[in-house]
């Protein structure tokens, strides 16, 4: 078939990221609903605070407290995105704001209640604080035009600035489509039918399982698929003793490179139904398929490999049989 399988998948990491001492102090200020700047060189102030002067690369100096207000210097008007947890429901601006007393500009949102006409050059804005500040740039929900000119000294004095923030949460989440390609789709479709479909290169006669569409050695398009038994020989292996999130089998267990009979490459898979210390290079193994109802176009249709010699087999623990 000249079409490819494709499937959605998500990559996500729950990263935590350390911040520098100056950035940590700035974020601690936000947590207390106070806006800090930092001195650089003779007479300049940066807000947000940087660890190093972007012009001279020198370490930045003393922190100074600034009024949480400023002037818009540039903006772009956008609509809130569907499927995103946007803090503003109506259209808003991404803007550069020169904080009063600072020499650089601050990138953040400006909310004018959904009215783009209120975005004008030199627009005066002030910070709208988050209800529950945690020590993150998101403690500022956005900037907004003041309803009326602020009375000096009447602004929220904020809380005591505590210890500098040491780390911030930096999650990563992207939804992707995996495109297997016409080559690998052949073997994947075979997996859903309990078949191992291999392909041979007409140029160098290398046999691949799984097979891409063309030979990675001589670049020729591979011949038509043919079925192999799925039995093979352990080429090398390791015993996994380390637990990790998402693990399908309780350690210890064996992961092996298996040279499937009739192919020239190696397939990585689990080897179960055998005591890990009884596994050896050269051991003959055979596939154990998932039940009919669980078959899918995936290598997961082969739950694991086991020794061909029944005398070497030991029953898999109930847990492993269920999870494998």
């Amino acid at each position: 078939m000249d079409t490819s399988l494709a499937a959605p998948y998500t990559t996500a990491f729950g990263f935590e990221r350390t911040v520098g001492p100056q950035i940590g102090a700035f974020l601690a200020g936000l947590r207390a609903r106070r806006l800090l700047g930092v001195r650089v060189g003779e007479d300049r102030v940066l807000c947000p605070v940087a660890e190093f002067d972007p012009v001279t690369s020198a370490a930045t100096g003393d922190l100074v407290e600034l009024e949480p207000s400023g002037t818009v210097t540039a903006w772009t008007w956008v609509d809130p995105r569907e499927g995103w947890d946007e803090p503003i429901d109506s259209p808003y601006a991404w803007a550069l704001i020169r904080i009063d007393g600072a020499d650089n500009t601050f990138f953040h949102r400006v909310d004018t209640g959904g009215d783009p006409a209120r975005m004008t050059p030199g627009l005066r804005v002030r910070v709208r604080w988050a209800a529950d500040p945690v020590g993150s740039i998101e403690d500022i929900v956005c900037f907004e035009p003041p309803a009326e000119p602020p009375v000096p000294g009447a602004t929220d004095p904020g809380a005591e600035i505590g210890e500098p923030v040491a780390t911030i949460e930096a999650p990563f989440h992207v939804d992707y489509t995996y495109v297997a390609g016409v080559g690998r789709s052949v073997y994947l479709r075979g997996m859903a039918e309990r078949r191992f479909l291999a392909r041979r290169c007409p140029g160098c006669h290398q046999v691949y399982f799984p097979a891409p569409d063309h030979c990675a050695r001589c670049l020729q398009v591979l011949d038509a698929p043919f079925e192999i038994s799925g039995t093979g020989t352990i080429s090398t292996f390791c015993i996994v003793n380390l637990p990790f999130p998402g693990q399908l089998v309780d350690p210890p267990y064996v992961v092996a490179y298996i040279n499937l009979d009739g192919t020239g490459n190696k397939l990585q898979h689990r080897v179960l139904e055998v005591a890990p210390d009884a596994v050896a290079v050269g051991m003959q193994v055979e596939p154990v398929w998932a039940p009919e109802t669980d078959l899918e176009p995936s290598l997961a249709s082969v739950r694991y490999f086991r020794p061909v010699d029944p005398t070497l087999r030991v029953p898999v623990a109930d847990q492993e049989a269920r999870d494998a």
Partner: peptide, 22 residues
């Protein structure tokens, strides 16, 4: 920038929009 920009998840055209506006 992972501290001040990425957490805000700006629209992908946001910085271009700002530069064009400027």
């Amino acid at each position: 920038d992972p501290y001040y920009l990425a957490p805000l998840h700006p629209h992908r055209h946001a910085f271009a929009g700002l530069q064009a506006h400027a």
